[in-house]
Design a protein around this nucleic acid. Structure first.
Length: 666
DNA sequence: TTAGGGTTAG
């Protein structure tokens, strides 16, 4: 093979006289060359040779070429261009293109080539349908699925077990479970061979995906032979439905727990916000001698990222390095994400810089990391570098870069990128993009512009949009506009606690206690409960969570004593509790007490009594940090001479020597 | 046979 490659690339045949060709390469040689090609450049050279050797109408070779190009991300256009230059494409050429498009998420285009195939009077075969159905499922187009079903019937291909499998899968994925069930029942006519365990699996998966896990359990129980993955599917379904205990019970009953079932549990705990359990499950798995795969590592790192568990994340990073895991794109992106979300942008950058392969997602997590940590310049630098490597930014990258502008308070830059995305890249903004722009205007106090922007949006503003305007009104004390926004919020989601909490916050801020009471009563009458605030802290690799007013911790008394001490000392440095952040109409002293038990403060006190050697105290909070806690953290960082890092729902606050990286703008 | 499968996933 090496000799053949050398022969090919060192002495290409003269381009102008292709008929005179001293080196003859036959079909099997070309095919094995394509299979062994390592880079895109290599493939392009082989493509050139195919043309020079007049082999461009050889469908066996071209089929291989199309699939090879499609395996490399971002090169699907090469596959398309090869297809377009092929005269009279046959079944194989069509199949390989349809597959290439479906595999690269170009679902619509793959369907359109399927249609073209039919119009060109080329009869689809069994191997055409798995990919066409995959695209249909992804597009969520049930009617299209039915049309294709008819085609399959006409061609008599329903008895093909994989065609049947994909058809049932498609119906389950587009939510037409009755059709899936009917097909499943009818399939018994072809015997057990056709009705494979996988077919059961697909149906059970379908039920889980629409949240009908009860039905899934029923099917599972009557299933003749239980396949490993079915357990995982079901456990995953139960976890997604929040049925943690049932999932655990089922998982315990699995005799041979494989990597996938462990990963499902780890991921399931994480999905339910139980990151501590997710991580202890991961370490239990290691203790039991089960080797994690890339996906397990990604899930475990994700749990660290969510809980802000830097120490544990670093431990997993060490594990990855010493156990021969290749730093492929998935793990790299997860590591960068973990370090960035744990507030360690230095380590995130280090992993990122060392990564051999950087895809859109790797760049994307890095830019997000810069954004939430408040490094606009670094985010911009990454954005430009990414473009120079030829990767085109997508909507998510633009969202990250605009968010970076938001946290840096740079309105003009943010608006510039928003326009650039629309006009230069033809990316249609999503609700999230609009929300960031509203936030951008709102935080800068440009409330009228924000409102005008919302009114001119081409899509109907959702809860988040009005919420962003609302927060801005609150910060800039515009009660009239806040009331308007809150009306919109309550219209959209009358059961969502956010709308009520927002409104009572505004009234409380303005001292309008009667109005606060009115909102609170309304909230109670409608049975709406406020989201509890919680915080995570990791000390010596152990994650602990606190909720506001928490007295459940073993060392609760000590924690509260320590907190009193910090507050007292802070007062001597000029800290006064900012009671406007309390909702209730209560006496000043009580208000102070209510503020005093916010979960991030409890976490801080816990860190101070248990981690003498902690140089940096890292806290993760599920809501936005309140002004009072923000103020106390600043004082605490100065008094204790320790850095305090708080990640709230929006961004990072790095407190150092009495000031915060957000410059009090958040 | 020029080529098709499910489970965990940011």
């Amino acid at each position: 093979m090496k000799a053949l490659l050398r022969m090919l690339f060192s002495k290409p045949p003269p381009a102008k006289t292709p008929s005179f060709n001293p080196i003859f390469i036959d079909e099997p040689q070309f095919i094995s060359l394509i299979h062994s090609s390592k880079s895109i450049k290599h493939l392009q050279q082989i493509h050139a040779q195919i043309i020079l050797h007049h082999q461009f109408s050889n469908s066996r070779i071209v089929t291989q070429l199309i699939s090879s190009f499609s395996f490399k991300n971002n090169f699907i256009n090469h596959a398309l261009s090869i297809f377009r230059h092929f005269n009279n494409p046959n079944l194989y050429i069509f199949n390989s293109l349809i597959r290439a498009l479906a595999d690269n998420s170009y679902y619509m285009t793959s369907i359109s080539y399927f249609v073209l195939m039919l119009r060109s009077n080329i009869r689809p075969a069994n191997l055409t349908f798995p990919f066409v159905l995959k695209s249909t499922a992804a597009l969520q187009e049930g009617w299209l699925g039915m049309e294709i079903h008819t085609q399959i019937l006409k061609l008599g291909l329903l008895c093909d077990r994989l065609v049947l499998l994909h058809l049932v899968d498609m119906y389950a994925k587009v939510g037409l479970l009755e059709c899936a069930c009917q097909l499943f029942d009818e399939s018994s006519q072809w015997g057990d061979e056709a009705r494979s365990t996988l077919l059961w699996n697909v149906l059970i998966n379908g039920y889980c995906k629409v949240g009908k896990w009860g039905k899934a359990v029923e099917l599972f129980e009557v299933m003749p032979e239980k396949y490993g993955s079915t357990w995982s599917t079901l456990i995953n379904g139960l976890m997604k439905a929040g049925e943690i205990d049932r999932a655990m019970e089922l998982w315990r009953s699995v005799e041979e727990r494989d990597v996938v079932s462990w990963t499902t549990m780890i991921n399931g705990f994480s999905l339910n916000g139980q990151h501590e359990q997710a991580l202890s499950m991961f370490f239990e798995m290691l203790e039991q001698g089960v080797k994690p795969n890339d996906q397990t590592i990604v899930c475990a790192l994700l749990a660290c990222a969510k809980a802000g568990a830097l120490e544990t994340g670093t431990r997993i990073h060490d594990y990855v390095l010493s156990n021969g895991f290749a730093l492929k794109k998935g793990i790299t992106a997860a590591l960068v994400d973990m370090y960035a979300k744990c507030g360690s942008i230095e380590n995130a950058s280090r992993v990122f810089d060392m990564a051999e392969e950087k895809d859109l997602r790797t760049w994307s997590v890095m830019i997000w990391g810069c954004a939430i940590n408040g490094y606009l310049d670094k985010a911009l630098d990454c954005f430009n570098k990414m473009k120079s490597t030829g990767i085109k930014p997508d909507g998510v990258v633009f969202l990250a870069i605009i968010t970076a502008c938001l946290h840096a308070g740079n309105v003009d830059h943010g608006l510039h990128f928003f326009d650039k995305m629309k006009h230069d890249y033809s990316i249609e903004p999503t609700m999230k993009h609009y929300a960031v722009i509203v936030d951008l205007y709102g935080r800068a106090g440009r409330l009228n512009q924000a409102l005008r922007f919302i009114k001119n949006m081409p899509i109907d503003p959702d809860f988040v949009i009005w919420g962003a305007l609302f927060s801005a009104c609150r910060a800039h004390k515009n009660i009239q506009m806040a009331e308007y926004a809150s009306e919109k919020l309550l219209e959209l989601e009358p059961k969502h606690p956010g709308g009520y909490v927002f409104l009572s916050n505004v009234y409380a801020g303005a001292g309008k206690w009667q109005d606060v009471e009115r909102v609170r009563t309304k909230m109670k009458n409608k049975g709406v409960a406020k989201d509890p605030g919680w915080s995570y802290i990791e000390i010596h690799g152990q994650v602990t969570s606190f909720v506001a007013g928490d007295h459940f911790h073993d060392r609760s008394d000590e924690i509260h004593l320590k907190l009193d001490e910090i507050t007292k000392n802070a007062r001597e440095f000029g800290y006064t509790p900012e009671t406007e952040w309390v909702l209730h109409n209560i006496e000043e002293e009580e208000k102070e007490e209510s503020l005093g038990s916010h979960s991030e403060k409890l976490a801080l006190a816990f860190a101070l009594i248990s981690g003498d050697d902690l140089k940096v105290i890292r806290i993760v909070k599920n809501l936005k940090i309140c002004g009072d806690c923000h103020s106390l953290m600043k004082h605490a960082s100065k008094m204790t001479k320790r850095d305090i890092v708080v990640r709230d729902i929006k961004r990072f606050h790095h407190f150092k020597n009495g000031s915060c990286s957000c410059q009090d703008y958040w």
